[in-house]
Write a protein that binds this DNA or RNA. Structure first.
Lengths: 259, 259
DNA sequence: GTTGACCTTGCCGCAGCGTCAACGTTTCTA
DNA sequence: TAGAAACGTTGACGCTGCGGCAAGGTCAAC
């Protein structure tokens, strides 16, 4: 048989056959006078075994191991490991499909947030925001979108355990009567401070309003938390007045928490 | 932020961040005086979106598509396609695990055939052979192992539909009373002809015995089927007498089938 | 001053082949 | 009998999503 014939017989490509030669999985057969490889039925038998093994999901080096040792002992280990691996993959895919299903539900309903895929809990919070915003006159404050971005970032940043606690606090806050309306007032007030200086007279009252919204347990451990690079980065595209509001609000909330 | 800081914040590696730059997924940020990349919070937000999307299983070019068009329309298509893809993968893996489970059962019972993984039906046939052989005195004829190899090859070679029919015929044949014993007599007789010439006196009776075992529908369409290269390959390491037996048996079975 | 932890660009490697390229051989057809 | 189509040969690059290493430059701390 020539290479095309054996490949067609076994149901693989000639390229794969040569690849197996290259890897030493299949010994090079004798050559004809013209240099063509000349295969026998035994090669086909071997190739068929290789194909069956690879179709199970074994890597080519594992195939080589299995073909090499006739112990019949090691193959059990390889197969068990492979099965465990496949089981893990199945679970992973299942989890992904679950998240995907939620996202697809949002996306189909036209409620795919611009922030990209987020957890169900956060998606619900964003939905509440959308409803609250729709009930208010005028366009949504830019700061609201910024806040959602920050929350989406926060969600991917914090570890799992803390994430649930944090999300819980947020949703609890959002469910408080009138909280959404007050939040949107703060957003609007912050928008109004987009070009203001740090000593603007509106800073203090906006900070108080913001502090009134913050749950105690989403406040960082100390007000010094936003002083290092994280602070400069965090406020990178805030106006001086906006930054001042946030700093002041955190300080107020922190003092309140300390009492 | 420097690259290590943003990478740590978002939970990816610096290498990945640079990779995203290279692919144009994430715009290169400004550089500091020393050449270091200087990231902002917006970059972190973007990176977090990228991470969430890749964790869903999107490829990086799909991520780029999703990030690029704000239509919100295309993302539904991408997600649906992805979900369908994942569903297909799950089914594939499930099928593989099923086959693997059968194999593991065989392997754990020490009944892993030397021919490698085969279908449950063929495995059962091989099991019958093993039992029949164990009940007979002496070692198993080499031709029996050769036959199993051929059957395993045949199984991977023929298309699905025909495979089931063929396996059915084989198992029916194997269940006929005394068939296994007669088969092993033929194997032994063929072994005995390993060095014999084509005109050996034992050829005719062995061929008759073999023909008596063959179901009509596993006989090739015509006896000419084994005359081309497939014949020379098929008989490549048969002795002249063994080849003669098979040819004669096929002819007998074919004539019988024609009547 | 020197260590150690950063940063820079750039290139190789991975699995399992697909896909040219550039060329020789065989076989079918006009 | 010539030419084209369909095979074969070796060799090399491409794909995904980065990891890892090399050979430096930079910065803060001891």
């Amino acid at each position: 048989m020539r290479i095309g014939e054996i490949a067609g017989l076994v149901g693989i490509t000639t390229r794969a056959v040569r690849h197996y030669h290259h890897l030493g999985l299949l010994p090079e057969p004798r050559r004809r006078a013209n240099g063509y490889r000349d295969y026998t039925l035994r090669d086909a038998v071997l190739l068929a075994r290789i194909r069956r093994l690879t179709e199970l999901g074994l890597g080519l080096d594992e195939v080589r191991d299995v073909l090499a040792d006739d112990a019949g002992r090691e193959i059990v280990d390889v197969l068990e490991e492979l099965d465990a691996d496949l089981a893990r993959q199945q679970e992973e895919i299942g989890a992904r499909r679950e998240r995907l299903g939620v996202l697809l539900g949002q996306a189909r309903a036209g409620r795919m947030p611009a922030e990209g895929p987020v957890s169900p809990g956060l998606a619900e919070l964003f939905g509440d925001m959308a409803r609250a915003s729709a009930a208010l006159p005028g366009p949504e404050p830019a700061m609201a979108a910024r806040d959602r971005e920050m929350l989406a970032l926060l969600e991917t940043v914090v570890p799992e355990a803390e994430r649930d606690r944090l999300l819980g606090s947020l949703r609890e806050m959002a469910r408080a009567p009138g909280a959404m309306e007050r939040a949107y007032e703060v957003y609007a007030a912050l928008d109004a401070l987009a070009d203001a200086a740090a000593d603007d007279v509106r800073v203090e009252e906006t900070a108080r309003a913001l502090a009134g919204l913050l749950p105690d347990d989403v406040v960082p451990d100390g007000p010094g938390d936003l002083d290092g690079w994280s602070g400069t980065v965090f406020f990178a595209d805030f106006s001086a007045a906006q930054a001042a509001v946030v700093r002041r609000a955190l300080r107020i909330a922190h003092e309140r928490g300390a009492r």
